[in-house]
Amino acid sequence: MFNLDKSPIAGSGDIAKNRLDNIIMQDRMERSPQVLEHIKSEIIAVMENYLEFDESQIEIDLWMPSGKVAGEAPTLTTSFPIKAWKRRYEDGQEGE
């Protein structure tokens, strides 16, 4: 109780900051939904070099934490079912 050097527990100012960061991220995403689509198409372009997959199965989502738990960050998740692994980079050789 008399450990005066210990910083106080997170006040509502810190909660405000976390919530604000998350809300702003979500707002900006909603205002420009095409950004997620751009991310998706660029990921697909990279993945196509290595993998075969069905584009219609790909999901991309932004998960938002409540802001009230320390250390939880907004997270972009992609679900990417793979049909086949291309052979072109086997044994470190640039294929075809």
Binding site: P8, A10, G11, S12, G13, D14, A16, K17, L20
Partner: peptide
């Protein structure tokens, strides 16, 4: 008192 966001936030 950390009950309000500061300028940086």
């Amino acid at each position: 008192r950390k009950e309000m966001m500061d300028m940086d936030a």
